[in-house]
Amino acid sequence: MTKKRSNRGRSKGGKGHSSLVQCTNCGRWVPRDKVKKVTSRLSLVDPSLAKELRASGAYIASPTVIKYYCVSCAVYYGVVKVRAEDERKSPEPLR
């Protein structure tokens, strides 16, 4: 049978099963090694006020928000791009 991707769409290697997580957008249950994980920081303070507080020496905490997307939602939101067949099968170069 033909092989579309060299890693079969997962990053688990040969370890068997992996736990499931729920997609942040649609709620689909997806294996943890297949989801697209997006980490961002959430600012709780207005930027102009934060600048003044930092100047006075205050520490401003910003919580980390982790979102998990299934492949279809990740493509829809532009987290990942659809790649051509030859780009898909070869590993991406390190940046």
Score class of each variant (00 low, 15 high):
Gln22Cys: 05
Tyr59Val: 09
Leu94Tyr: 12
Arg41Tyr: 10
Tyr68Gly: 11
Glu87Asn: 13
Ser56Met: 11
Ser62Phe: 02
Val65Lys: 09
His17Ala: 08
Val45Ser: 11
Ile60His: 04
Ser11Gly: 09
Glu92Pro: 11
Asn7Val: 02
Cys26Met: 08
Val21Ser: 00
Thr64Met: 09
Glu92Trp: 06
Met1Ala: 04
Asp86Ile: 11
Ala74Ser: 09
Tyr76Val: 00
Ala55His: 09
Cys23Tyr: 03
Asn7Cys: 03
Arg41Pro: 00
Val35Gln: 01
Ala61Tyr: 07
Leu44Tyr: 12
Leu53Ile: 05
Ser6Pro: 02
Cys70Trp: 03
Trp29Asp: 02
Arg54Met: 10
Val45Cys: 12
Lys3Tyr: 13
Met1Asp: 02
Ser62Asn: 08
Pro47Phe: 13
Leu42Ala: 07
Pro47Val: 07
Leu42Gly: 02
Lys15Tyr: 14
Val75Arg: 15
Val65Asn: 07
Val82Cys: 10
Ser40Leu: 14
Leu49Trp: 03
Gly13Ser: 05
Val30His: 03
Arg28Leu: 15
Glu92Gln: 13
Arg10Leu: 10
Val79His: 13
Gly78Phe: 03
Ser6Ala: 10
Ala84Gly: 11
Gly16Trp: 00
Ala74Thr: 06
Glu52Ser: 07
Val65Ala: 05
Val45Glu: 15
Arg5Trp: 06
Asn7Arg: 07
Ala61Arg: 06
